[in-house]
């Protein structure tokens, strides 16, 4: 199935939120929005999802708006005073956001705990988590990985948004590739690699992993491009931080419309 229109619509909404707020973290949201769509549009309602890379909050808010979990009127308050939608997700505001995140390295332990709880209860719920590749630098990710393997949590599916860039450089140049499939396989995860902008492939990948009750926690290493969809932003570290000018926003909107086949609004 072709999800181009959906991908374009989500990107347009992300850009609109960032432009309205004058905020950064655009590149990281465009990097992982397709992964989130592949999870949140297709998971069962009872399955849980944690966005561990909380700085991609606009992607989360956008897709949850798409699924009906966040109302339209709330989106307009993003980044403003007295909002429920700050730059990183807030605690206890939406049922679909079980944990506030923003400090990296928290999501995998939390999702692991949820998976362990589901195992103890004997239910079929899946615990999803999305991490950034830079985030796998965090020791807590490794602690959680060993716990998940030791506890045979095959109901845990971790996605890594591998765009190759982190806070202040290329992941390869800083600590090396701590999201390397070989490392996670060596720890005992079942790992698949996937195009992180192909919703159909991502969805098929996790569904196949979920069906494989082999006692191994799962990981989808998703190859992505930071700023995906807007050439000026693609694969550029500065778009982790920069807000758009009005001219940049106008150009970006047009590029998304053309690139993803959206009609003019």
């Amino acid at each position: 199935m072709d999800y181009k229109q959906l991908q374009g619509r989500l990107r347009s909404n992300i850009l609109k939120m960032h432009h309205g707020a004058g905020s950064g973290h655009i590149g990281c949201s465009l990097s992982c929005i397709d992964i989130m769509a592949a999870i949140l549009k297709f998971k069962n309602e009872a399955d849980t999802f944690i966005l561990s890379k909380g700085h991609a909050a606009t992607a989360l808010y956008t897709i949850l708006n798409e699924t009906g979990a966040i109302p339209d009127e709330d989106l307009g308050t993003f980044y403003k005073n007295a909002t429920t939608l700050p730059a990183h997700p807030a605690p206890l505001k939406y049922a679909a956001i079980p944990f506030a995140t923003g400090s990296l390295g928290h999501g995998l332990p939390l999702a692991t705990g949820i998976a362990k709880a589901n195992k103890l209860k004997g239910n079929d719920k899946i615990s999803f988590v999305l991490m950034s590749d830079g985030e796998t630098n965090e020791g807590t990710s490794w602690e959680a990985a060993h716990f998940a393997v030791a506890n045979k949590l095959d109901n845990l599916i971790a996605f890594v948004d591998c765009n190759g860039l982190q806070g202040f450089g290329n992941t390869a140049d800083i600590l090396g590739n701590t999201a390397s499939p070989k490392l996670w396989e060596a720890m005992g995860f079942e790992v698949v690699e996937c195009d992180g902008h192909d919703i159909e492939a991502l969805m098929q990948a996790w569904k196949k992993l979920a069906a494989n009750k082999n006692g191994k926690p799962k990981m989808v290493v998703a190859s992505t491009v930071k700023g995906k969809g807007i050439k000026e932003m693609e694969d550029k570290m500065e778009w982790h931080y920069l807000p758009m000018t009005d001219a940049q926003y106008t150009a970006a909107k047009q590029e998304i419309r053309a690139g993803y086949g959206l009609e003019n609004d």
Partner: peptide, 23 residues
């Protein structure tokens, strides 16, 4: 009864995840 190993930060994260599910 779970032994989380010598990994205290993960122990608390796991605990929070489990508590969110009613434990």
């Amino acid at each position: 009864f779970i032994n989380a190993g010598v990994a205290e930060q993960n122990m608390i994260g796991v605990a929070a995840g489990m508590a969110s599910q009613g434990f």
